[in-house]
């Protein structure tokens, strides 16, 4: 019996996710109970309903993950569970489920920083990232650039001062009447329009920090003041603005740090526009581009399980207690 399997649990936001991963990063199972149907009715995530859904789906999700991987509790090395950042009511369900399982199965339970999970997600299924690397995390909850000297030696270069890219996409999606989540719909609409409107590019030439609230307000003002806005062109102009910001900051990072690869993770990494802009940037700067499959880019538990091995290797046995304001420098 090889005890090199970690059970990962992720409930920081609106999806209940459980996965089994071995030390090579191989995903033995990954089960996600999505709450999209619950939250799309509200046009956003409603924490109380998220927590209610977690409590009814978590045990079946754990069971399904164990069953699909055909793994017995004795084969587990540890349980890794997201302890933050995230919604407190959602985190508590995952953390206490992990605590109960750990006691019942007599396995250590380690509280994992969700952001470290995202940064490791590009190495799921296969080792893709060559270190040192520049990583751009773009999701509904986070937007930042980091320099990873190794899997655990991480420096934050800059993050957003206000909204995340994903949030901005969702808000613009709502302004354009595209429903929730807005991201993919905005990209799709943008592909049919022309970037004719000069929206701002906040902080474009100012270091590694991001800011998107000015861009969002500018789109809103334009829609309020324009008599017959062409939504396709608004979307195309907005997306062009976002892409220019993301590409410029990434370019600066790649030129400043001695990186062998450039990885993009987080839900917005699914954006076709971002994927092609990143491909062009990597080609121009002759750096290897790592784009993990979209299923590992959005929130999932496999990335939490993979990060758990890093914690184990460093004997960082963090307690499974909620910590809402973790940054990337924290374990």
């Amino acid at each position: 019996m090889n005890n090199d399997i970690v059970l990962g649990i992720e409930t920081s936001c609106d999806d209940t996710a459980v996965a089994l991963v071995n030390s090579a990063g191989q995903v033995l199972s990954s089960v996600v109970a999505s709450q999209l149907d619950i939250h799309s009715a509200f046009g956003g995530i409603y924490p109380e309903f998220a927590a209610r859904a977690h409590i009814s789906s978590i045990i079946p999700t754990v069971h399904e993950a164990m069953h699909r991987a055909d793994v017995k509790p004795e084969q587990l090395l540890a349980i890794g569970v997201t302890r933050g950042p995230g919604l407190i009511s959602s985190l508590l369900v995952g953390l206490n489920t992990a605590a109960g399982l750990g006691l019942g199965w007599n396995k250590p339970v380690i509280g994992i920083n969700h952001l470290r999970g995202h940064l490791r997600s590009a190495d799921l299924d296969q080792q893709r990232v060559k270190y040192p690397a520049i990583i751009l995390l773009v999701s509904g909850g986070h937007t930042f650039l980091a320099y990873m000297e190794s899997t655990t030696n991480i420096t934050l270069l800059g993050s957003t001062r206000d909204d995340s890219v994903g949030e901005t996409y969702d808000k613009v999606g709502r302004m354009l009447g595209l429903g929730y989540p807005g991201g993919p719909a905005v990209d799709k609409l943008a592909a049919t329009g022309h970037p004719t409107i000069a929206f701002p590019r906040p902080l474009l030439r100012t270091g590694f920090e991001f800011s998107f609230s000015g861009l969002k307000s500018s789109v809103s003002r334009y829609l309020d003041n324009c008599e017959n806005p062409v939504y396709e062109d608004v979307a195309a102009s907005f997306v062009q603005s976002v892409m220019e910001i993301l590409v410029k900051k990434s370019q600066l990072a790649i030129k400043t740090y001695p990186a062998k690869s450039f990885a993009i993770v987080g839900g917005v990494a699914a954006s076709p526009q971002l994927r092609s802009a990143a491909a062009k940037l990597s080609h121009d700067l002759k750096i290897e581009l790592c784009l993990p499959p979209v299923k590992w880019s959005t929130d999932n538990a496999a990335m939490i399980a993979l990060a758990t091995f890093d914690y184990l290797n460093l004997s960082m046995l963090k307690e499974p207690l909620p910590e809402l304001h973790l940054t990337i420098s924290d374990f």
């Binding site: 978590i58 045990i59 009511s89 508590l92 369900v93 399982l101 019942g104």
Partner: peptide, 19 residues
């Protein structure tokens, strides 16, 4: 208290499941 009730239930369910 909703968070506390859920915390207790999450723990009880998973302990029962694992045992």
């Amino acid at each position: 208290g909703t968070s506390r009730v859920r915390t207790g239930i999450a723990f009880a369910n998973s302990l029962a499941y694992s045992l």
